[in-house]
Design a protein around this nucleic acid. Structure first.
Length: 842
RNA sequence: GCCCCAGUAGCCCAAUCGGCAGAGGCAGCGGACUUAAAAUCCGCUCAGUCCGGGUUCGAGUCCCGGCUGGGGCACCA
């Protein structure tokens, strides 16, 4: 068959190896023919010698979960358009491919099959690699990397050590998110609505000694440097990162806690964004589950607190986080002293105050904070408004007034507006020495320890004498033991590595005594936080990357991937880049100058999923319509960032267009290099207009519109051929060559075949972007629209350089205009030569 | 509750600065070619831009207020 998928006979396109009928579009024979040619020519390997300006285009590397799916097909189609376009424009393009190949699914598969995780992993990688080659991704395969290769994770460990030396990797005991099903620790980012992101099991807390990266030290820079990304990253990604970092300006205020009932006096600091409302504080709350609550509580109230803590612990995070839940809490028996007015405030312990945000304690201002008001009403605590907002009294309504207003009942702050009172209050606190301006962040340090096997081992040895001892650089990598497989990998709450005794037991590199390796592995997000640096010199053996190359390529000019990585991966990669920059190893301090989030591929309005049974198999689509038709459909369906609903689009329509474009080649009757200046002027204008428009559209990622323009050019060329000028007209060749080059970004097989038909050697990928002749775009006449009161009343063919006065004369002389004016006078005439005149009647 | 994004023909989508609402495709209808069909080629129909205000000579585009859909954060002090 040619392109019609419904017909099962005439199967030239679906059966590779069968000789296609002469002159019939056969994607199967193209797919069989060209990959070897491209590989032999090394078309997609950058010259990397500085002779041409460099550009780095990167797709988020895949996890080898199985074969490629529709989502990969979309994402990589988009990235490939960018890479191929920049190559045509003459840049030396780095467009590498690799695999994020550590991770839990491989481990689970290994347990099930009594195998080693590497077997499953590398088999899947081979499958995906073959599919990528079929899909004609213009990648430099010589730079292929896998994060689970010791040559790679050696440098992940090396970087961990550098972080450690800078105090950016540290261990601490802390309550961690624990998934009772996967038996592993989860980062905050991996807890979704109180449940494990992976398996949905409600997450519990467990106290463990864990490794952290001190990402909070970079919170300010991660936030501030987003201004560089503004306009180049999707706004929603920046918004999500801003939300996640959660910068909050306010003050730290120190309250003295009275000595009572066997407990000594001490101070407790709170964080507040509303120091202006200090006079309205009527009680004080500490997080019930924080150690602070135990420190404060008097013996008399101790039992009640313990009972309350038990109740809180029994609640799941989901229940606890419900905002509808009634306020609960217990009195601690203690009083805090308001530093401004000396008032005694009862100290309560409650679970609506979070132990791990701010200082785990708050001053409660019920009149102006809804949560505090709810609590006050539940426990009959006083409410004192200190801000006149003009709204109804919160004491009456039960609705806290959080808006603007004027201070009252607040001593020296009285009469100030909220905006004035905040700095004034901070000023007073600073003078008293009981507080200061403070910026708080929601962001927590990055917990990187995982009690899992298939990950990068943490290169630390624990020695009874010397403590934590990093494995010396020349002993890296610390490789995973090969003899653990199957059941031995199943989760037990400690890392499976702990069972490999001959691996665990080592000599201390420091003192030589018996010591043990750290048995945790790193979160796989560590691996993917620097892979873009490794791609620059993936075979370099003296460091994570070649210093002579790194600044030539970094930063990545265009990064392409799904919005699901808007927070985790992108934030971590930015953090790593900044640290490596601070180490003096990298000039860039942002990794990705521009980011494109391609949409999802849906089917019938919903994400494809096994449970819905609406999955579309990529392999089947490729068999049925061909690689080019699938790629073209992905790109043409909608703007790259929008979702594509496979039920709404037509790969058979794409295939029809490709065949139509390809057939142009058969009609071209002139020789390569023919003088095009005598060609059909109308077609030449369309060709050059298309070349110019396409470049601008591509610069703005409007790939779908480029395809539409290309369709127009194909239609115009067809028309020229059929309307008499014929295939011998040099303009037809010029148009067909432009079609081949532009098409090469979207449909590499068809474009290469067309290019070949037109008598050119491979590869069209290196043909170079055609230059457009601006003189052909100058129009002899343009249509000027004449409006009366904003409504179109006439159209005039005028010279493009007509003067405003001349155009005004012409417009006023128009019969249609005079009829529309109907005798009314003219108030004003707006002239935008040469395109528009608007006449406003009196 | 806070924040971000998007609503244009039956459907997917175009529309530099505010300047003729329509480029392209899908679906539909009609025609040419054919004994017929497929393929191919040609042509046609279809909305006034989610709603309400405002600014303007002029608004899909800018401003204000809503509605609907999608997404993020969330007892975050």
């Amino acid at each position: 068959m040619s392109v019609q998928p419904e017909t099962e006979t005439g199967a030239q396109s679906t059966v590779a190896g069968e000789t296609p009928e002469e002159g019939v579009y056969s994607f199967a024979s193209m797919e069989a023919k060209w990959p070897q040619v491209w590989e032999d020519l090394k078309v997609f390997t950058p010259v990397d010698d500085g002779s041409r300006e460099r550009r780095y285009v990167l797709d988020m590397f895949p996890y080898p979960s199985g074969d490629l799916h529709m989502g990969h097909a979309e994402a990589f189609a988009m990235g490939d358009v960018v890479a191929r376009y920049l190559r045509q424009k003459g840049f030396d393009v780095l467009h590498p491919i690799g695999w994020d190949s550590f991770g839990l699914p491989a481990e689970n598969a290994a347990i099930k099959r009594n195998a080693h995780p590497s077997e499953w992993t590398y088999a899947n990688i081979d499958t995906q690699a073959a599919s990528f080659k079929r899909y004609a991704i213009s990648a430099d395969w010589s730079r292929r990397l896998h994060t689970s290769d010791p040559e790679y994770y050696r440098w992940t460990q090396w970087l961990f050590k550098r972080f450690y030396e800078r105090g950016l990797a540290y261990r601490k005991d802390s309550p961690v998110n624990w998934c009772p099903k996967d038996l592993t620790v989860l980062a905050n980012e991996q807890v979704v609505n109180g449940a494990c992101e992976r398996c949905g099991t409600p997450v519990t807390k467990k106290s463990l000694n864990q490794w952290y990266f001190k990402i909070t030290e970079y919170a300010d820079r991660l936030l501030d440097d987003m201004s560089e990304l503004q306009g180049h990253w999707p706004e929603r990604v920046l918004a999500m990162q801003r939300n996640w970092i959660g910068r909050s300006e306010g003050a730290h205020v120190r309250f003295a806690i009275e000595a009572t009932d066997g407990r000594a006096e001490r101070g407790v600091t709170v964080f507040t964004t509303r120091p202006d409302t200090l006079y309205g504080a009527t009680f004080f709350v500490v997080a019930a589950d924080a150690h602070l609550a135990l420190d404060l509580v008097t013996p008399e109230h101790h039992d009640a607190l313990m009972a309350y803590r038990e109740k809180v612990k029994a609640l799941s995070d989901i229940e606890r986080q419900s905002t509808e839940r009634e306020k609960t809490g217990v009195f601690t028996g203690r009083y805090a002293i308001n530093p401004l007015n000396g008032e005694k405030l009862p100290v309560w312990a409650a679970d609506y105050v979070l132990a791990d945000y701010g200082t785990g304690a708050i001053m409660a201002v019920p009149a102006h904070d809804q949560r505090d008001l709810d609590f006050a009403r539940a426990f009959n605590l006083p409410v004192r408004p200190v801000l006149n907002t003009g709204g109804e009294d919160p004491v009456e309504t039960g609705i806290a007034t959080a808006g603007e207003g004027t201070l009252m009942n607040s001593g020296e702050l009285d009469g100030l507006s909220k905006a004035e009172a905040i700095p004034a209050a901070i000023d007073i606190l600073e003078k008293l020495g009981t507080g200061e301006k403070f910026v708080n962040f929601r962001l927590r340090d990055w917990l990187l320890s995982r009690q899992r096997f298939w990950g990068t081992p943490i290169p630390i040895i624990h020695c009874a004498e010397c403590g934590e001892v990093p494995v010396p650089d020349d002993q890296l990598p610390v490789t995973l033991p090969e003899n653990l497989r199957g059941e031995a990998l199943s989760p037990r709450g400690t890392s499976p590595l702990a069972a490999a005794l001959e691996w665990v037991n080592v000599e201390c590199p420091n003192c030589g005594r018996a010591a043990e390796r750290d048995t945790d592995t790193m979160d796989t997000f560590v691996d993917s936080s620097w892979y873009f640096l490794r791609f620059v010199s993936p075979h370099y053996t003296e460091g994570p990357f070649d210093p002579a190359k790194i600044n030539a390529w970094m930063p990545v000019g265009q990064y392409v991937g799904g919005v699901e990585h808007a927070i985790l991966h992108l934030l971590y990669a930015r953090f790593f880049t900044k640290v490596i920059h601070d180490m003096g190893l990298l000039e860039a301090d942002e990794p990705f100058s521009a980011l494109l989030n391609q949409g999802q591929v849906l089917n019938g309005g919903k994400a494809m999923s096994k449970s819905l049974g609406n999955g579309v198999d990529l392999g089947e689509q490729l068999d049925k319509f061909g690689v080019d038709a699938v790629r073209l459909t992905m790109v043409f369906a909608s703007p790259p960032e929008d979702d594509v609903d496979w039920a709404d689009v037509s790969p058979s329509g794409s295939a029809k267009f490709l065949a139509r474009a390809w057939r142009l080649g058969k009609d071209v009757a002139s020789e390569p290099g023919v003088d095009v200046s005598t060609g059909d002027r109308t077609l030449r204008t369309v060709t050059h207009r298309t070349i110019a428009d396409a470049a601008e559209l591509l610069d703005n990622n409007k790939f779908n519109v480029v395809v539409a323009k290309l369709m127009e050019l194909v239609n115009a060329t067809r028309k020229t051929i059929d309307a008499g000028a014929g295939g011998a007209d040099p303009a037809v060749r010029e148009a067909a060559e432009a079609v081949a080059i532009i098409l090469s970004l979207f449909a590499p097989y068809t474009a290469e075949d067309l290019w070949n038909q037109l008598g050119h050697p491979a590869s069209v990928a290196n043909a170079g972007w055609p230059s457009h002749d601006a003189s052909l775009l100058v129009q002899d006449t343009v249509t000027a629209v004449v409006q009366v009161q904003g409504k179109v009343r006439d159209r005039l063919e005028v010279s493009p350089d007509i003067s405003e006065d001349a155009l005004r004369e012409l417009a006023l002389a128009s019969e249609n205009v005079q009829r529309a004016l109907d005798g009314r006078g003219i108030r004003t005439v707006i002239v935008r030569a040469p395109k528009l005149v608007n006449i406003v009647p009196a």
